[in-house]
């Protein structure tokens, strides 16, 4: 299998004008992006943003309503089996059989990809060793912890030595430590095999560890870029103000300090170069009004709010046929 160095050769994923409808509800409204070979690319978005729909289309589980998708240089309209040969897929829901052992799961999965015999055993064993699962190979999957079960899923996804690994919210349900472990394994595999990794997530710390991310909101890709670059789009610090009368305070701040504070879920949000000084001035200027002020360096959550005008959490999914 040939793999180009990151950023060279044909892109691993090329998506143009991708649309998908569930009935009349538009889950994806014209999404366009490119992922280079060897890159770790994350789709960040709240539930209902379109991540899972995008994942299902890329994983060849569902044809899109419109647009073109090329994976590893092959069009999804063409020979699907050829596309699937180059893909490894890790689902959000478990796809391992809990009644089988770790090794049995890998063996059956390998057979589905045409692997067999000593080569399959050697490959499976090497993978389990790298993922720290070698001593659990003979255990039934149902006896493993949640974190280890996710690692078995990862082993399944990596077993056919894919050029492109797709993961749908792979660490959902794991504690923060297990989530960090899982991401560390992904980085190791990228460094070791050069595999291109595309994942969806709603964890900011996971998105921070991607080379580039795309922010999905209501079926649209509102931004793509390296996490640091996206955060750099926000000037200085983010100041959040809680007030008795946020709308009244918004006007007063605008009159006194200029700028355009944004009201998000009852909290006033401003971007200022020197947040700590501004916070002090604000409390002194409106002593009876301000109930609390926080400020800090922008996070990806701030980037999301900045770009969409919505809170990341607390938005109800729009429902209907997955997200």
């Amino acid at each position: 299998m040939s793999r180009g160095a990151p950023g060279t050769g044909t892109a691993a994923v090329e998506v143009e004008g991708l649309r998908h409808l569930y009935g009349s509800r538009e889950a994806l409204a014209g999404v366009t992006f490119r992922v280079s070979r060897g890159e770790i690319f994350g789709f960040l978005g709240p539930n209902g943003g379109g991540k899972t729909t995008l994942f299902k289309i890329l994983a060849t589980l569902m044809p899109p309503t419109g647009g073109t998708v090329r994976l590893l240089g092959r069009d999804l309209q063409g020979d699907l089996r050829a596309v699937r040969r180059g893909l490894g897929v890790v689902f959000q829901r478990a796809s391992v059989d809990p009644k089988l052992t770790v090794a049995e799961n890998l063996r059956h999965h390998g057979h589905l990809y045409g692997l067999r015999g000593p080569a399959l055993r050697a490959q499976g064993h090497a993978l389990l060793t790298r993922l720290g699962l070698a001593d659990r190979a003979a255990d039934l999957v149902e006896t493993l912890s949640g974190g280890l079960q996710r690692r078995v899923e990862l082993a399944k996804g990596l077993l056919p030595r894919p050029d492109l690994l797709l993961l749908d919210e792979p660490t959902t349900g794991l504690d923060p430590g297990a989530r960090r472990d899982f991401m560390a394994h992904l980085h190791e595999r990228r460094a070791g095999d050069g595999v291109t990794i595309l994942l969806t997530t709603h964890f900011f710390e996971e998105a921070e560890r991607c080379d580039r991310i795309g922010i999905l909101h209501r079926g649209r890709l509102v931004a793509t870029g390296a996490p640091e670059d996206l955060k750099g789009r926000i000037g200085g610090d983010v100041v959040e103000v809680r007030a008795k009368d946020p709308e009244g305070l918004r006007k007063q701040i605008r009159e006194r300090f200029g700028g355009e504070p944004v009201l998000v879920d009852g909290t006033l949000r401003l971007e200022r170069p020197r947040g700590h000084e501004f916070a002090r001035e604000l409390v002194e200027a409106f002593p009876g009004e301000v109930q609390g002020v926080t400020f800090g360096k922008p996070t990806l959550e701030d980037v999301f709010v900045h770009l969409t005008g919505h809170r990341f959490w607390g938005e109800a999914p729009t429902g209907g046929g997955g997200t």
Binding site: R84, V89, R93, L112, Y113, G114
Partner: peptide, 14 residues
């Protein structure tokens, strides 16, 4: 229901 089938369906298998 349990998810095993999804792994089979994305494999390059007729």
């Amino acid at each position: 229901q349990r998810g095993f089938l999804q792994g089979v369906l994305v494999a390059p298998v007729p």
